[in-house]
Amino acid sequence: MLLDFRSLNKAKVWIAMDRWFLCKDLFVWLISQGFDWVTKAKRNTILFRKTYDPALHRETYAKVNPKQLLREI
C-alpha cells in the first residue's frame, strides 16, 4: 500500500509510528524502500546514529542528541 501511494505522490512521505509498535522488520523495509519515519519518543529515549569508524573498519553506533537531529533537518 505504501509503495502504491508513493507511485501516486512524488512528495516526501513520512511514516508515523507509535513508539510501542516499532517492528524491526517493518523498520528495515521502510529504510530499504527510502521512506522517512518518525515516532514520538519519551523523554528518556536514547537515540543512536550508525556511523562508520575508519580506525576500527566497521560500523558503530554513537549517541545523538534529539535537538542536534532537529537542527540538521
Rank of each mutant, 00 (worst) to 15 (best):
N65W: 02
R19Q: 13
Q33W: 02
E72C: 06
L69A: 06
K42V: 06
L56M: 10
K63W: 01
F48Q: 00
E59W: 05
D53L: 04
S32L: 08
K12R: 11
A55L: 12
V13F: 01
L2H: 04
L70Q: 07
W37A: 06
W29L: 13
G34F: 04
V28G: 00
W14F: 10
K40I: 11
I46R: 06
I31W: 10
R49I: 14
F5D: 07
N9G: 03
H57Y: 10
L56P: 02
D25Y: 05
V38S: 06
V64K: 03
H57W: 09
P54R: 08
L47H: 03
D53W: 08
F27P: 00
T60L: 11
K63V: 09
D36Q: 12
T45W: 05
C23I: 11
F48H: 05
R43E: 06
L56R: 09
G34D: 00
K50I: 05
E72D: 07
Q33M: 09
V13I: 15
K67G: 04
I15G: 03
R19I: 15
F21D: 06
L70H: 08
W37I: 05
S32M: 07
L30S: 02
R58N: 07
Q33P: 01
W20I: 12
V64D: 01
W20S: 05
L22P: 00
A55S: 11
D25F: 10
I73C: 04
P54K: 12
L30T: 08
V64W: 00
L70P: 00
F27K: 11
A55H: 10
L30M: 12
E59T: 02
Y61R: 09
D18C: 02
R58K: 15
W29G: 01
L8D: 03
F35R: 07
M17G: 03
K63E: 11
T51A: 08
V13C: 07
M17K: 11
R58L: 10
F5M: 14
D18N: 12
V38N: 01
L69M: 11
T60H: 03
V28S: 07
L70E: 07
P54W: 03
K42P: 00
T60E: 05
F21K: 13
F48L: 05
D18H: 10
T39L: 08
D25R: 13
R19F: 14
L3E: 11
F21N: 09
Y61H: 07
T45V: 05
